[in-house]
Design a protein around this nucleic acid. Sequence first.
DNA 1: AGCACGCCGACT
DNA 2: GTCGGCGTGCTC
Length: 693
Amino acid sequence: MSDVERTGVQLELDGLPVLQARRRARTVALAERAPVARVCIDLPPQHLDRLFEYAVPAAMAETAVPGVRVKVRFGAQDVDAYVIERTEDAEHDGELLPIRRLVSAEPVLTPAVARLARAVADRWAGTLTDVLRLAVPARHARVEAEVETDDAPAVVPAAGGTAWAPYRGGAAFLQHVLAGGAPRAVWTALPGAAGLRWPDAIAQAVAACVLGGRGALVVVPDARDIDRVLAALVDAGIPARRAGGRGGAVRLAADDGPAVRYRAFLAALRGQADVVVGTRASAFAPVRELGLVVCWDDGDSLHAEPRAPYPHVREVLALRSELEGAALLVGGHGRTVEAQALVESGWAHDVSADRPTVRRLTPRVLALTSTELAREGAAAAARLPTPAWRTLRDRLVEGPVLVQVPRAGYVPAVACGRCRASARCGTCHGPLGLSRADGVPTCGWCGRLAADWRCLECGGAALRSVRVGSERTAEELGRAFPGVPVRVSGARAAGGVLATVRDAPALVVATPGAEPVAPGGYAAAILLDAAVSTAGSALGLLPDALRRWLAAAALVRPSSEGGSVLLVGDAEERATQALVRWDPSGLASRELAERAELALPPAVRMAALVGRRDAVLAVVRRVDVPGLDVLGPVPVEQPAPVGALEGDVRAILRVPRGSGAALARSVAASMAVRSARREGGTVRAQLDPADLG
DNA sequence: AGCACGCCGACT
DNA sequence: GTCGGCGTGCTC
């Protein structure tokens, strides 16, 4: 191509209309080297998910580099785009339009992240544009222009891995990371003394990585966990990055606001920070020379991205570790079936403690089921049976006691006092609940008050509680233990989620995931309403219930210090035993075997297609993969899940595990045909759907 | 997505 | 005879 391009008058060719007449003749001097930019256009339709080529004007020869945002003319509109690569020659045979404008000279999309985003789009049958919207934060021009002086001292991490001592393979993992390797580990974390807990273990792994000259990325479920890891990183010699400094860690969370988020993003991009600790979207953070990626508590639903194409942090980081030659650490107190599959396929090492170590570090765990309580007589039926009450009383002398309640609120569900039928809203048939002792029952779906409620089954007018929430529990315990302070922690609690509580006698009532940390460990934990946690038929229900119990139990002192955990209620037997034995991988392994027998994920790969019936059927018909099994479509359950409308159907596509990539490719192709033809309605395609119902 | 072109119904 | 419906096709 010549360095001066004439986008000239297009004459009629045989049979071709004068389509290109609007490309006005204009002379643009082009870049001498690599005058072609291949760009990803920011438009949603699936059939536009490919690169388009534009000419690079000479004025942008040095600035329109891969990764920068540009404006280009696409059809009749000006659209945003990312330069993905620069090449000498165009593949497109036809005139190339010049890039119109450079939005910013900052190459925010690194080649590594661009490759990852492409792989994620392919894996989840989505578009590159959709993934880039998750991966790259909104630009903040003022932050981008901030200049820094270079005066802060460089960061020198400390060597050491004491927090890994309890785990078989832990020291080897760290050694391998330090030496520049890319080991993959699934880790079951245990409780420990201050300085030896999961944030410390992660911090020490990160320190080994940084000491070995590479950057690290830690993704945790929520902001509170970010703070815990950052605090542990300070102890490991990696302080928060200071302006003007080299090295250190930054927090990257969407709810920090655009300026703070973009500043942290730029610090990683520019290599000023070598450690990123963040939530979900930070799985795509542009860490330089990435040596280690960590996914903490991969069973937490916050790791599942709710926006298309619905990627999961664990899987994104697994992909990333392969693409960038980085080590992978997937850890938690529990063990997900998916993580167990990584171990059993031989892809990742199991890093966990042997039985004596587990017994030494964990509290004593007891299950108070109705069989255990049979000899207690009438008191057995109580929500807080006598043995649990005794434990509370005895352990409260030693320090704080944690009470985990599966439900928030006061009385989230009520039933007819006469016939026990669950109380439903007279208008929409949603579930009724109480928010206060003297309150009127309220519908959980439409919010209507049910002042003059009558049972639809028997006409009774009296209500009874069937589920008791954290607020009511706190009230009851306060009465049972007068003089003991009661704290409530939860997203919907008056004081919100508490990060810590003092090492003094107190009753700490928390919903799962909102348990505050007691620096010296809780004296005991009571896990209430165990039956609620394992009721239902959702996939992964048991390992998930165990994960929530273990998260609370892991905050309790070891049995040698009197620490004890009581599970109260008749939960599912295997989950109960797994807690008593503190054996999450055993439960996950059995669950995995069962899934293989029933042809359920992760033994197979699935795609869910949700939308109007004819639209879903059209997409399904074009999917062609060897071994494809089409289930449904069936009407989606009520209330409809997020994004689904009433009357929508869902089809499930199932293929053998090895055909997962082909399934994603075929679904994406069918969705592309759909968008090109503008078939009506909406169809949401989701690979590895979390809620299989 | 947006906009061109192209082929069939009710009207200045 | 035209103006205009929205069904395909294309956009570097």
